[in-house]
């Protein structure tokens, strides 16, 4: 039952993450500053949308991370269910609020972008609706973690919820596409160069995306450390009660 993973890794994880955390944080800040300053002040206005389009330097990376955070939680949940690796479960727990905030940022910037462009703060467009549903999934996941006292039980239940939720999130995505054709433009980035945004915007956008990815990693590492320490504290308290 008990393997090396279970004992060795929390301590090793904290040591390792302590070493890399300052670097990742610094890199994240640097990439964000470069990307945002470049993007907001040193790019031309777009032909049709004017300066409004520059909100994409926040909108696109946060939307990307909203989905990637969920994917990361899915992978972490699978690792927990298969390997019973405590750090993995706690990392999933740590990522959820970050992902929820990313989703919220994407929704808020989307609304701010949509107002001047489409003349409305909100439409029941497939993409917007999907993100709203994703946000609800995040809320449910976080609430389930918060509601259960025993850590291992909570990790098991939330992992299964994450798995089932992922399937239903994908189903919802297709259902929503079927339900309403939208106003939202196609993907801003793709491998197909024809569809990409202009190069002028492209490079600062990449900086912003890199910044958001690094920021996400830094936040998740930090929060995972916190979760590990909180968990250790609970275990110590329980032991003290045991005598």
């Amino acid at each position: 039952m008990r393997s090396l993973w279970e004992y060795a890794n929390p301590a090793r994880f904290i040591r390792l993450s302590d070493r890399v955390l300052p670097w990742i944080t610094a890199l994240a800040l640097a990439a964000l500053v470069i990307g945002l300053v470049w993007g907001l002040w040193f790019t031309p206005d777009e032909r049709r949308q004017g300066a409004t389009v520059k909100i994409m330097f926040l909108h696109v990376p946060s939307a990307l991370m909203a989905i990637n955070a969920w994917l990361m939680m899915l992978v972490a949940s699978l690792i927990w269910l298969i390997r019973r690796h405590h750090v993995s479960a706690l990392a999933a727990r740590a990522a959820a609020p970050v992902g929820a905030v990313m989703t919220l940022i994407a929704l808020a910037t989307g609304a701010i972008w949509g107002q001047p462009t489409w003349g409305t703060w909100w439409v029941w467009d497939p993409r917007l609706t999907s993100f709203l549903i994703l946000f609800l999934f995040y809320l449910g996941y976080i609430a389930l973690w918060a509601a259960i006292e025993d850590d291992d039980t909570a990790a098991d239940l939330t992992s299964v919820l994450c798995l089932v939720g992922s399937v239903f999130a994908v189903l919802s995505r297709y259902a929503v596409l079927f339900w309403n054709q939208g106003l939202h433009q196609g993907a801003s980035l793709s491998m197909d160069a024809e569809e990409n945004v202009d190069n002028v915007f492209y490079i600062p956008l990449l900086f912003c995306i890199a910044g958001f990815v690094l920021l996400f990693i830094a936040l998740v590492l930090l929060r995972t450390q916190t979760e590990i320490r909180a968990r250790r504290m609970r275990a110590l308290l329980a032991r003290e009660r045991m005598g």
Partner: peptide, 16 residues
């Protein structure tokens, strides 16, 4: 909590 967990899962069923 049950409602919060189940309602998002009901979305595809409701839509179709």
């Amino acid at each position: 909590l049950l409602s919060l967990l189940v309602l998002p899962l009901y979305v595809p069923t409701l839509i179709y």
